[in-house]
Amino acid sequence: TTYYDVLGVKPNATQEELKKAYRKLALKYHPDKNPNEGEKFKQISQAYEVLSDAKKRELYDKGGE
C-alpha cells in the first residue's frame, strides 16, 4: 500500500487534493470518533506528512521514505 493509496489519491494529485483527502479521512478515522481506528489514523497522518512536503514527496516518489 502506498501513501497515495492510504489517502485515496492519484500520484499526480495536487497539494489541494491531498489536503482535502487528508481532512476527510482524518475526520472519519479520528480516535475521538473512531477509537478502534487509531492505527489507521496514524497511517493517514504519516502519509499526509510525507506527501504534503515537496522535498519528502519527491524523495518518496523516487523510492525512498
Rank of each mutant, 00 (worst) to 15 (best):
T14G: 04
Y60A: 03
Y48T: 00
P31I: 06
Y60Q: 03
E58G: 06
V6W: 10
D32N: 12
Y22E: 00
K19A: 14
A26T: 10
Q43R: 09
K55N: 11
T1S: 12
T1W: 14
G64E: 14
S45W: 13
P31S: 07
A21G: 02
Y22F: 13
L18A: 01
V50G: 02
A47I: 06
E16G: 08
P11I: 08
E37R: 06
A47M: 04
A47H: 01
D61K: 02
K40C: 10
D5S: 08
R23N: 15
K40H: 10
K10A: 13
H30C: 09
K40W: 11
A54L: 11
Q15P: 12
K28Y: 10
N34G: 08
F41S: 02
E16W: 10
L27C: 11
H30G: 13
D53L: 03
Y48R: 01
K62Q: 12
E65C: 14
Q43D: 07
K20R: 14
F41K: 02
A13V: 10
I44V: 09
L51E: 01
Y48P: 00
R23I: 15
K24D: 11
R57V: 02
P31C: 07
E49D: 11
K56T: 09
Y48C: 03
G8Y: 04
E16S: 10
L51V: 03
L7E: 00
P35K: 09
T14V: 03
K20H: 11
K28G: 05
E16H: 09
E39G: 09
A47E: 01
K55S: 11
K40L: 12
T2M: 06
K42L: 11
N34T: 07
Y29Q: 02
V9I: 08
K24L: 13
K20G: 07
K20D: 13
K28M: 14
K56H: 07
A26W: 15
Q43P: 03
V9H: 00
A21S: 05
L7T: 00
Y29M: 05
V50P: 00
Q15E: 10
E58P: 04
N12S: 10
N36A: 13
I44C: 03
K55F: 10
F41N: 02
D5K: 08
V9E: 02
K20I: 14
K56G: 06
Y4G: 01
T2Q: 06
Q15I: 10
Q46R: 10
L59T: 09
D61T: 03
N34M: 07
K33Q: 12
E37D: 13
